[in-house]
Design a protein around this nucleic acid. Structure first.
Lengths: 118, 118
DNA sequence: CAATAACACAACCATTTAGTTGTATAGATG
DNA sequence: CATCTATACAACTAAATGGTTGTGTTATTG
């Protein structure tokens, strides 16, 4: 499980749409922050509000997006709603992105140092 | 190389921004299509226009976004501009996303079959 | 049952952005 | 040098989306 299988080519339009949609869900700083907090473990909306320093309504809205994308899960507990990561794969995605960022910065750094060294 | 290293927690705001930005670049069907075509190998703008059935200006615009993100590279050849994948990691990202999608669909399918079986 | 607490939903506004139209630039070609 | 071809750039429009404000809903509590 969790191994990636190669993509057919060309990727069918519907799948292209789904892929882009998933990326778009993650293309929002607030949602990344929420996921980052949920990495610690499940949390209620109030806890997430505190962690992100955003309004309750805003947090609720972004959680809905993440929920509909199947990235988080919701469980009602009395008056509270406890959200949790439903798809651990998102963290592999983030790490992969960070790896790419690191590589790019390393390249830039090398260029700058080469440029200033003489 | 290319191994992902674990993310610190909490992820600093600036990094959150960068991560989201990278995802946002990929959160666009046309750009996914362009990358999918470039998976075959480098291509000129004209070839990409043909592959995506979009306007030259639109393709050019999206290529610019991909270029600025460092995901593709550009090389002028006479009158032509040849674009190529600069960061192969994007395909691992796409495959990871597809893996997640497959898992979700499998779950849905199981739910539906359980629901209709009786 | 009234009041409160936690969360969700809806309407609105401002910003962003994808796509188009029109035009500019740069290199090839006669 | 004039022209054509390939590409990039700029301005505009329409649609999508993030954030706020206001309100609804559900469950707890006195």
């Amino acid at each position: 499980m969790n191994q990636t299988t190669p993509l057919r080519h060309p990727i069918p339009d519907q799948l292209v749409e789904l892929i882009a949609q998933r990326f778009r869900v993650l293309g929002e700083p607030m949602r990344i922050k929420l996921l980052d907090r949920l990495r610690e473990g499940p949390a209620t909306v109030g806890e997430l509000v505190e962690a992100t320093a955003a309004s309750q309504q805003n947090v609720s809205k972004h959680l809905r997006v993440l929920l509909e994308a199947g990235i988080v899960s919701r469980a009602r507990e009395g008056n509270f709603a406890r959200y949790a990561i439903a798809d651990e794969a998102v963290f592999r995605l983030c790490e992969e992105v960070c790896g790419g960022l690191r590589a790019q910065f390393a390249e830039l750094k090398a260029l700058i140092e080469e440029g200033t060294a003489r």
